[in-house]
Structure formats: structure tokens, C-alpha cells
Design a protein around this nucleic acid. Structure first.
Lengths: 183, 183
DNA sequence: CTGAACATGTAAAAGGTTACATGATTTT
DNA sequence: AAAATCATGTAACCTTTTACATGTTCAG
């Protein structure tokens, strides 16, 4: 079980652990689920699929015909083992790059009015996120039978995004109140 | 006002906009404030200071003696202009890489017991964060007079971290409940 | 005088994004 | 027949991290 895989390769392994898919399907699934806490770009996805295949962790399921035909990938046995081992390894610490927040913290000390504008920008971006949650992470509307087979995961993602956005918006409220009381 | 600066260079500009400091002081300030939503490593900091100096946006304040003496930097006029312009440009979208969360979402569908372990890992990391918030972002204990000159910023950072960690812990609670009810 | 904290820097590699390029299939 | 979407891929670039390297100052 190679431990020289990139974090992104491991994530791809995770998508294939649920069921076999093509690169494009992984891309779409990533867009609709993990996109807001784990980015996955084309320039990573397709090369990493080849890396995983070369390492014997995934294999083509069925023959692909034509030069650009859809190619479905599935985990090999050692691929599944690598996936399970990944789950047991300590996770990389959470990383965030939040430029808007950095700006707010500098602006608040120099120019409260500018800071208020930046808080408005922040509020808008989280509000947009809430308004489009159904697009980003479709609400699961399955029956109980379907749900038990698919697991609670889609709703967990939604809830996480929801909680995060709400807490960010609440923070915007309190910052606005603080800045306004100073001016 | 060059728009080819890296995001990190702009952040450095922000630190110097508050007051002149040395590279080491920027590093320490970043560690104690923005570290959890904006990483800043040595390998970036010192080279970027030189880039900013070469671009005429910062300059040495006073002479530095000796080969490894402390060097204090301050904004030039055009540096301050570049900083203010940065504040007005649209911010890069929030980016996050949350490996633990990715694992949980895959594991929940395959192995609820493993997922529970991962939620425990998540809980521990956010609990650690809360327990060490005073180290990461020192609580401001200034008088009102001091506070008004320094602005409300340090407390805003604290509050943001606090809200984020609390909402993450609440999510852990609800995921544990969901997963336990399934098994 | 020895170790910890202060202080600055470099080189190489990893990881990721963007833009570009191509072609198939489906819809209008 | 054109446009949108499906589908895969490459090359260049950018940013950031990691590991290394060096010297200073202060406290015990």
C-alpha cells in the first residue's frame, strides 16, 4: 500500500470505493458533494487516475472503445486495502485560505467603513452558498428503503455546509454590530 | 500598483499596514492570529519581503547591522495605496481542504463504525482548538482606551474561531447520533 | 557554557489550478 | 446544422510547503 499517493489520489480512491465510475462521473460527484471543502480539478483528476492504475489500485471495468470513450474505473483488491488504510491514518490538519476574512481583520483596525463593506461581501458569499445549497449538495429525497442502502451521507454534507454558513452569517451580524457601535 | 503579487504578499502588506515590523514579527503575529485561516510559512515570508521591497511597496525602516540582524520593514506610500486597492478588489473564494471530513463522508456509507472513529478524531481536533484558543489567538484584556486605539480585531478573530469550532462540534454530535441510530 | 528562542534565509519538490486541445454525443 | 454537454487529456505555471542552513542573543 503505497504511501506516496497525493491527498487527491486518495480522495479519488474514496469515490471509487463507493462504486465504479468514470473520471467524468467522479468529477461531477465531487462538484455536487465535496466541492466546498475539497477541490478537484481536471488537471489533477485524469493524471491521478493513471497514477492509480499504474500502481495497481484501480483498473478499467470493461473495455473502452474509441479514443475518447467513457472509461469506467473500479478498485482492485489492493486498492480497497489502500482505501481502508487511508481511513485509519491520521488526517492532514484542516487547511483554509480565507482572503476576505484576512482583509476584514486588517481593515477593522484601519478603516471600519471599508471593513463593513468587506463584511457585506462575506455575507453575500455565504448567503449565495445557502441559496444554492440544493445545487451544490442536492437534498436527498429518497424513501427510507433507498436511504438505508445509500447511507446518511448526502444529508450529513448538507448539514455541515448549513451549520458552517449559518455560523459565518451570525459572525457577520455581530461584526457589523461591533463596527457600527464604534463609528 | 502591481496586480501580480501573490495572495501571501498582499497579506504581508496587510500586517505592515498596521505598523512596521520585522519578518520574524510578522511570522509571530500570523501564528497568533490568522494561522487557522491563512497559513504563512518561512519559505514564503522572507522571499516575498524581498519581492515587495523590489517592487517599492515596502522599505527598510532604519539601518540593519550585521548579517542576520533584525530588519524592520514599513510600507511606502505606494505600498499603502496597493494595500488599500487590495481591500477593494473582489476576494478570492474561500478554499478549504478538510481531509477528515472527506474520509467521514466515504466511511459513513461503507463502515459506520469506522466513521464514528473518524468523527471522534474530528471532535478531538476541534476540542483541542477550543482548549488552545488563548494560545492561538490571545484574548485581548486591554482597557477601553487601549482597545479603541487597537480596534476590535483580536476579539473578532477569536469569535470567528469560536463560532466555527462550536458549529463543527455540534455537527459531530449530530453525526454520532445519526450513525449510532443506524447500527 | 549550553540550550532555547530569536532571526533570516535558500533550494527543491510537491501539489494544484488554468488554459488549452480534442473529439463524441445529444439536444434544439 | 449548430450548440450544448459529455468526456478525456496535456502543458505550463503558480504557490506553497518542507527541509535544510546559518548565525545571534539571552537565560539558566
Amino acid at each position: 500500500m503505497p504511501d506516496d499517493l497525493t491527498p487527491t489520489a486518495r480522495t479519488i480512491l474514496g469515490f471509487l470505493a463507493l462504486h465504479p465510475r468514470s473520471g467524468y462521473e467522479i468529477r461531477e460527484a465531487a462538484k455536487r458533494s465535496v466541492s466546498f471543502f475539497w477541490g478537484l480539478s481536471d488537471g489533477q483528476l485524469y493524471p491521478q487516475l493513471k497514477v492509480l492504475a499504474a500502481a495497481g489500485l484501480i483498473e478499467a471495468a470493461g473495455a473502452s472503445e474509441g479514443p475518447r470513450a467513457k472509461q469506467v474505473w473500479q478498485l482492485t483488491e489492493s486498492g480497497r486495502a489502500a482505501f481502508l488504510q487511508w481511513l485509519r491514518e491520521p488526517s492532514a490538519p484542516l487547511q483554509t485560505r480565507d482572503e476576505n476574512l484576512v482583509k476584514i481583520l486588517f481593515a477593522a483596525q484601519l478603516d471600519p467603513a471599508e471593513a463593513l463593506r468587506l463584511v457585506a461581501e462575506r455575507r453575500a458569499s455565504f448567503q449565495w452558498f445557502l441559496d444554492h445549497l440544493d445545487t451544490i449538495v442536492p437534498r436527498s429525497t429518497w424513501t427510507e428503503a433507498e436511504r438505508s442502502s445509500s447511507g446518511p451521507t448526502p444529508d450529513l454534507i448538507r448539514d455541515y455546509g448549513l451549520g458552517f454558513a449559518r455560523s459565518a452569517l451570525a459572525w457577520c451580524d455581530s461584526v457589523e454590530a461591533t463596527l457600527r457601535s464604534k463609528s
